[in-house]
Simulated assay, not measured.
Amino acid sequence: MTPSTTALAEALANARRTHQTLDATPWLATLENADQAYQVQDAVAASLGWFADESAPRTWKSGGASRNAVLTHAPLPPAGVRAAPADFSDLVFHVPGIESEIALRLGREVTPAMAAALDHADAAALVDAMAVSVEIVDSRWQDLAATPALLRLADSQVHGALAIGEWKPYAAIDWTSQRCETRIGSAEPVVRQGTHPMGDPAWLLPVWLRHLTRHGRTVPAGTVVTTGSWVGILPCRRGDQVTVAFDGIGALRLSV
Rank of each mutant, 00 (worst) to 15 (best):
I164K: 01
W167V: 04
P197F: 05
I136T: 00
I164F: 09
L151M: 09
Q157G: 02
A125W: 03
A171S: 13
R192K: 15
A149W: 05
L151C: 03
C180R: 06
Y170V: 07
V137M: 08
D119G: 13
H159G: 00
A146D: 09
A187M: 09
M130S: 10
G194V: 11
D128T: 05
A161E: 04
V191T: 12
T182N: 10
D138K: 04
E181S: 15
T195F: 07
L144E: 03
L162Y: 07
D155E: 09
E135L: 08
A125D: 12
A129I: 02
H196K: 06
S139H: 10
W141T: 01
W141V: 01
A123C: 02
A124W: 10
S133C: 01
Y170F: 14
P201A: 09
S133D: 05
V191P: 00
P169M: 14
C180N: 12
G165W: 13
A121T: 11
C180W: 00
R192W: 03
R179T: 15
A172D: 06
D122C: 14
E181M: 14
M130V: 07
E181N: 10
A145T: 11
V190M: 14
A123S: 08
S139P: 02
M130L: 15
L151R: 07
V191M: 10
A161Y: 12
E188Q: 15
E166G: 14
I184Q: 04
D138Y: 13
G185P: 02
A146M: 00
G199S: 04
H196Q: 07
V132R: 02
G185R: 12
E166Y: 00
D122F: 02
D143W: 08
V190A: 14
L162K: 12
G199Y: 00
L144Q: 08
A123P: 00
Q193L: 03
D174T: 13
P189T: 06
A146L: 11
G165C: 13
H196C: 12
Q193P: 00
V127M: 06
P189M: 09
V127T: 02
D128W: 02
Q157N: 08
V127E: 00
V158F: 13
V137H: 01
M198K: 03
D174N: 15
R179A: 15
E166I: 02
H159I: 10
Q142Y: 03
E188M: 15
L162S: 05
C180G: 09
E188N: 13
A124L: 08
L153H: 00
H196F: 11
G185K: 11
D138F: 09
W175Q: 05
L151P: 06
D155L: 14
D128S: 11
E181Q: 15
R152K: 14
W175R: 06
T147L: 05
Y170H: 09
H159F: 14
I136F: 01
V132D: 02
W141Q: 00
A163C: 07
C180S: 12
T147E: 01
L162Q: 09
A131D: 08
S133E: 01
Q157H: 11
D138P: 03
A129T: 07
A131I: 07
L144R: 14
S186H: 13
